[in-house]
Design a protein around this nucleic acid. Structure first.
Lengths: 334, 334
DNA sequence: CTGAAAGCGCTAACAC
DNA sequence: GTGTTAGCGCTTTCAG
């Protein structure tokens, strides 16, 4: 369309072309109602003729806001954060917010570094999804004055809101049901990557056991020397049998299922499998894996929505929003 | 750490605190070598004391560049674009580029709208991954003067580079091998979502058939009234049998496999299955699905790398880079 | 080696 | 209704 070394077209060019002042042009692009119709026309004609596009950076400088927010996700998490992103992006689009993507690998140090950068870029806010941070590390986030929405766990602070589902309760209720039926040999597969999540899961299960006068001892620790959960479980299930095996991540659930079956255990007749993550995988493998159904899209959408409220300084009824989950029973449970 | 209505700390505050001019502060934050060591110290002390963070927006205005680039992906594509993003993000981090995420659903119109916005935000460049655009639509992209890297297919233009793998060749070679062995009853499952990709696949297969003096007639069209590939294939395979079934997307390959098996066809004995997409799914289901191995991480990394070159106006040897694929044989092929 | 001053493109009082 | 002007925070000549 246009050549490469055409003179930059700014609000001045437009003003000049239209024979008005730059203030008027500014009014037109911002839809101010005070401009007379015919001058608006003139300006718009000039804009069209010059193919003028307002410089969002300059606007950002003048207005002290960028209309863009940062999204921080764990690296390589797109398998399960995909839907969250979709939800987020869709409502971001509605409110015309740009999304800046960042990934975090390690613990809180890298997170802090990312946030530093986000602050330099003058993003209006940050949405963090991270189930790998420990509780104390989470508290660190409260010190920032930039608006933060935390996805995944409950956190509250001056300028921080959160959206989450209560996995502790979810696993508690699910396991209780088995204990009620006398199926007390429940196992939980360790997820080394998500200590915080494990904390919640363990608590929920232990609580259920305690309420039944029992003690939970079914944690399957994955020794550090095993690179994958599967490689260990293959050995483990050759010698052990459980009524129910609970895994956090989808791949771990599949690993558990495959290794049970390879060990000659029938699923779900001998051993039932349940996955705490909501992922396409659960539905695609055979037998299909029963799992928690988490409203991931909503998680993202609600997070973005609450962020817009924070930025508008709208009153926020609840700084932490708990979303409800569903239990979807497929083929790996009776 | 700091309160919420602390006065904004700018380069002036630092200059004042350190007793130097703002020019000097600017030199220090930009690592200019001309500053005397002791004044640098003073400035750095002031920066630390005030917890000063340079305003990237103001820098962007002054420098006429934002050090951030836009990434445009198909909506809900994170299952297979996840690795691409990882590659991209990792090299972006190295070069200190920010990534702005956008998703596109429909055709070229929305794409144009997104690009308009990206231009307003004065992003330095755009990386587009989109296998759903038709060839003519692709040409539209060439009209922009903003640097573009297109991922997935070969496109060349003034300010556009591309990184891709040659799926046409891949499928051609793979199918040729079957034809050589007399297995001529090959089927290709239609992927309604990716017309361009289908175009390439069909071309590749047809070429292989032609070279063997045969005509390809194995396209399995998914009628519009079927919402999922699976729902149709279940019926289809009850009455049809192929030596080899090729599917584009991972979920389609799984659908093909499951519906074959449910129809009593043994995989791979009766029917072999091959998937053109490289996805975790292929490896996780049982039997494991043979597939193309596409260097997705590299695709992203190379794209970002070439983008940095464009932005630096470094000489670019090849404006379109073909990456090589591997064929990974798992359980669904003999 | 350091400071003064002119932009970068736009918004928002404040005049007229 | 429309124009004037002073910032927004930083970079970069150009003097000294």
């Amino acid at each position: 369309m246009d050549g490469k070394n055409m003179k930059r077209v700014t609000i001045y060019s437009v003003a000049h072309e239209a024979g008005v002042s730059l203030a008027t042009v500014s009014r037109v692009i911002n839809g101010s109602p005070v401009v007379r119709e015919d001058t608006r026309q003139k300006v718009q004609a000039a804009i069209a003729k010059l193919d003028y596009k307002p410089n969002a950076i300059a606007q950002g400088l003048a207005l002290q806001k960028t209309t863009s927010i940062a999204l921080v996700l764990p690296e390589s998490s797109f398998n399960y954060t995909g839907k969250v992103i979709n939800g987020l992006l869709n409502v971001a689009k509605i409110y015309k917010y740009n999304i800046n993507l960042h990934t975090s690998t390690a613990g809180i140090n890298e997170m802090n570094e990312i946030i530093e950068n986000v602050i330099k870029s003058r993003m209006d806010g940050i949405i963090v999804y991270n189930d790998m941070l420990k509780s104390e590390e989470l508290n660190n986030l409260k010190d920032y004055s930039i608006p933060i929405v935390y996805l995944g766990n409950k956190v509250e602070g001056e300028s921080i809101c959160s959206v989450y589902i209560d996995v502790e309760k979810a696993v508690h209720d699910f396991v209780s049901d088995y204990l009620d039926r006398g199926l007390t040999n429940v196992a939980l597969v360790e997820d080394r990557k998500n200590p915080l999540q494990m904390e919640f899961l363990t608590k929920g299960i232990e609580k259920a056991y305690k309420e039944h006068g029992l003690k939970f001892e079914g944690l399957i620790k994955i020794p550090a020397e095993y690179r994958t959960t599967y490689s260990y479980l293959k050995k483990y299930f050759a010698k052990n049998k459980h009524d129910l095996v609970i895994a956090n991540r989808d791949t771990q659930a599949v690993a558990a299922m495959n290794s049970c079956m390879e060990a000659g255990l029938k699923v779900p007749e001998d051993t039932e499998i349940f996955c705490m993550t909501d992922s396409k995988y659960n539905d695609i493998v055979r037998p299909r894996i029963s799992s928690l159904s988490i409203p991931n899209y909503d998680l993202g959408a609600v997070a973005m929505r609450i962020m817009t409220k924070m930025l508008n300084k709208d009153p926020i009824a609840d700084k932490s929003i708990e979303l409800s989950y569903l239990v979807t029973l497929r083929d790996t449970t009776k």
